[in-house]
């Protein structure tokens, strides 16, 4: 596969678009007509060819522009990167994992040469070439975690495991909803997981924590999560809420198709070897309603899910203002026919 990287923006004039191929591989998260919150994980094993799960970390046509957008967000607010001092081993774990997987999965884009502790990394799409000593921070331009977080799509959190829980002790967060890294860094599992409506009582979070703490090396897991965003904006942070919060008022019946985006997060978790920490990676995929409805099966499915979504969840995800308009817009695709179980587009 040789990828043509698009030049596009995730802010201001919002030129972000999905190609036909990108639409087809979109990680559509609804196998059924109703949505129930769950934290069910599955092994993060190699998915089918072309799928977003084909490789350990997915690099797609948005790669270069997304990395630029991340750099921009970080430049405007350096607080999007934070790491506590005891996380250095985990930082190197992250660098090793990302460099090794990218160079194995995309050898035409990334290469890694190792001579003992002397490593040379080349990232062709971003025109980076760097020799450094593994384990010696002074030979990199910046922290190893920041260095590679800038070169992989998505957000990353490094978790420290201690006191029978997990602490979010480092993060690079430039494209996630509802996280304020500078505020949340250092928090324990139950502190940073604010209550999700309909969920806290069920002990779901306790079970998920127990499951994650016993995660093993060499056996990563994944799950999908979703929300919706107005405009293809990656940085929907609480920090910049004043910048994008008002966008929810700009949706009209005429622009629903272009403005309203389904935002899907591919979350993956890895046990890290030398730190015994965990890597939590959150990769965001955006698709607008027009693009989504090029596959009527998806439009039908999403119409039903969104229409019947529990109002507490709609409130929690901030979807109330444009829900009716979007459901109305989608209804034209829905003939009510049974479309069976599964997330496939056709």
């Amino acid at each position: 596969m040789s990828l043509a990287f698009k030049k596009e923006t995730f802010r201001d004039d919002y030129t972000y678009k999905n190609s036909v191929e990108a639409i087809k591989r979109f990680p559509f998260p609804f196998p059924e007509d109703t949505y129930m919150y769950s934290v069910n994980m599955e092994p993060h094993t190699k998915g089918p060819k072309g799928a977003v799960t084909e490789h350990t970390f997915d690099i797609d046509e948005h790669y270069v522009s997304e990395c630029l957008d991340k750099a921009k967000t970080l430049e405007l607010d350096p607080g999007r990167y934070a790491v506590l001092p005891h996380m250095m081993d985990a930082q190197w774990d992250f660098l090793e994992l990302t460099m090794e997987s990218l160079s194995t999965d995309y050898p035409h884009l990334f290469t890694l040469k190792k001579d003992g502790k002397n490593w040379t990394w080349e990232n062709k799409p971003l025109s980076i070439k760097k020799s450094f000593v593994f384990g010696d921070v002074s030979t990199l331009d910046m922290d190893p975690f920041e260095y590679m977080s800038r070169q992989v799509q998505g957000d990353f959190v490094l978790l420290d495991q201690r006191n029978d829980t997990l602490y979010a002790d480092a993060g690079f967060i430039t494209s996630q909803a509802d996280w304020s890294l500078n505020f949340d860094v250092g928090m324990a599992w139950h502190e940073w997981h604010g209550p999700v409506p309909q969920v806290t009582k069920l002990g779901v979070m306790d079970r998920a924590l127990k499951y994650l703490m016993s995660m093993q090396l060499g056996a990563p897991v994944r799950r999908l999560n979703w929300t919706m965003t107005i405009n293809p904006r990656l940085d929907t942070s609480p920090e910049n809420y004043p910048l994008w919060g008002g966008d929810r008022n700009t949706v009209t019946p005429e622009n629903v198709g272009k403005k309203v985006h389904l935002r899907v997060e591919l979350q993956t978790l890895f046990r890290l070897p030398r730190s015994n920490g965990l890597l939590f990676s959150i990769r965001c995929y955006l698709i607008n309603m027009e693009e989504l409805s090029t596959f009527p099966r998806w439009a039908k499915r999403f119409h039903r899910v969104f229409r019947d979504l529990h109002s507490d969840l709609a409130e929690y995800k901030g979807l109330v203002k444009f829900r009716e308009m979007t459901v109305q817009w989608l209804s034209k695709f829905d003939d009510g026919a049974d479309i069976g179980v599964g997330t496939h587009p056709e």
Partner: peptide, 19 residues
């Protein structure tokens, strides 16, 4: 929502969506 590291509660702009 409280951060032990900062010793403070989170404050979020109240009228961001509707100035």
């Amino acid at each position: 929502h409280f951060s032990r590291r900062l010793g403070a509660y989170m404050g979020l702009m109240v009228d961001a969506e509707d100035p």
